[in-house]
Amino acid sequence: QLNLPENTDDWTKEDVNQWLESHKIDQKHREILTEQDVNGAVLKWLKKEHLVDMGITHGPAIQIEELFKELRK
């Protein structure tokens, strides 16, 4: 059970990391997002292209984008 703020805009980069870990996103990809200071407010704007530009491969980038879309519903 994750204990994250209800509003994703309030998520810290550590919260984002924890959420991605719960969805089995590889540590190396989570570390990239942490290094790039991606918090919840930033995550909602990220598209696959942004994630790929940061060095995340296409498969996980699509997965992260789709997971966040599902979360926002």
Rank of each mutant, 00 (worst) to 15 (best):
T12Y: 00
L2V: 04
G40E: 02
S22G: 07
L33T: 01
N3T: 04
E6G: 04
K44G: 13
T34L: 07
I25A: 03
T34I: 12
A41N: 04
D53A: 12
H29D: 15
D53G: 08
L20A: 03
T8G: 07
F68W: 10
Q27T: 06
L46A: 12
G55V: 14
I62D: 15
R30Y: 00
T34Q: 07
L46M: 11
L20M: 05
K13C: 09
I32G: 09
H58Y: 12
I25V: 06
K13A: 11
K44I: 07
D10Q: 05
Q18W: 06
F68A: 12
N17Q: 04
E6N: 12
F68Q: 13
N39W: 00
W19F: 09
L20Q: 00
E70G: 11
I32Y: 04
L2K: 12
K69V: 13
D37V: 13
L20E: 00
Q36G: 14
V38S: 02
E21W: 04
E14S: 04
V16E: 01
V42E: 15
K44N: 12
K24Y: 14
G40H: 07
S22M: 07
P60D: 15
H23S: 10
I62L: 14
D37M: 14
E70Y: 06
K44F: 05
L20T: 01
V52S: 13
L67H: 12
D26V: 05
L2F: 01
L51K: 01
L67A: 12
M54Q: 03
Q36K: 14
E35L: 06
E6D: 10
E70C: 10
V52C: 14
L33V: 03
W19E: 00
D10E: 08
D10M: 11
T12K: 05
N17L: 10
K24V: 09
K28C: 07
M54C: 05
L67Q: 10
N39S: 06
I25M: 06
N3G: 01
L51E: 02
E35S: 11
I32F: 07
E31Y: 08
K28G: 11
P60M: 15
V38F: 01
D53R: 14
E70S: 10
F68M: 09
V52Y: 13
V42G: 15
D15T: 10
D10N: 05
D26M: 10
Q27V: 09
L33W: 02
L33P: 02
L2E: 11
V42H: 15
E31H: 08
V38R: 01
G59R: 15
K69G: 13
D37E: 10
E35I: 04
D37Q: 14
G40T: 00
R30F: 00
Q36C: 06
Q1I: 13
D26P: 10
H29E: 15
V42N: 14
V52D: 12
E35Y: 10
L33R: 00
K24W: 12
N39R: 06
K69W: 13
K47H: 02
E14T: 04
L4G: 01
D37H: 14
G59V: 14
V52W: 14
A41S: 13
D53I: 08
E21T: 06
T12D: 08
L43K: 06
D9E: 09
T8P: 09
G40V: 04
I32L: 07
Q27M: 03
D9F: 06
K24A: 12
P5Q: 05
S22C: 09
E70D: 13
T34W: 05
P5E: 10
F68C: 10
N7S: 08
Q1N: 11
T8C: 11
L4Q: 01
P5W: 00
V16Q: 00
V42I: 02
L43I: 13
D37C: 14
D26S: 08
P5D: 05
D53Q: 09
N3C: 02
K69H: 13
I32S: 05
T8D: 04
H23D: 03
N3E: 03
I62H: 15
E21R: 04
E31K: 07
Q1W: 01
L33F: 12
Q36P: 01
N3F: 04
L43Y: 07
T34F: 03
F68R: 08
E35W: 04
E21S: 09
W11E: 01
M54P: 03
H50Y: 14
V42Q: 15
D53V: 08
S22Q: 10
D15Y: 05
S22L: 05
T12H: 04
L2G: 09
T12C: 03
G59N: 15
H29T: 14
L33H: 01
E14Q: 06
V38M: 10
N39M: 02
E6H: 02
D9M: 11
E70V: 09
A41M: 12
E21V: 04
W11S: 01
W19C: 02
W45Q: 15
D9P: 01
K24N: 09
Q18N: 03
W19G: 00
V52H: 12
Q27C: 10
V52Q: 14
E6A: 06
I62F: 15
L43P: 02
G59H: 15
G59Y: 15
A61M: 06
F68G: 14
Q18P: 00
R30A: 04
P5H: 02
P60I: 15
D53W: 01
Q1P: 01
L33Y: 03
D37R: 15
V42S: 15
M54L: 12
A61E: 10
E70K: 11
M54T: 05
V42A: 15
M54A: 12
E21A: 07
N7D: 06
D15G: 01
L20N: 00
L46R: 02
H29I: 12
M54V: 08
N7M: 10
L20R: 00
I25E: 03
K44P: 12
E35R: 10
R30I: 11
H29P: 12
I32A: 08
E21G: 06
D10Y: 12
S22E: 05
F68K: 08
F68D: 07
D10C: 12
K13S: 09
D10F: 08
V38C: 06
Q18G: 06
M54I: 13
D10T: 08
M54H: 02
D9I: 10
D37P: 07
V52R: 10
E21N: 02
E6T: 03
Q36E: 09
L2C: 10
R30E: 01
D15H: 04
T12A: 07
D15C: 05
E14V: 06
S22D: 03
K13E: 06
P60Q: 14
E31L: 06
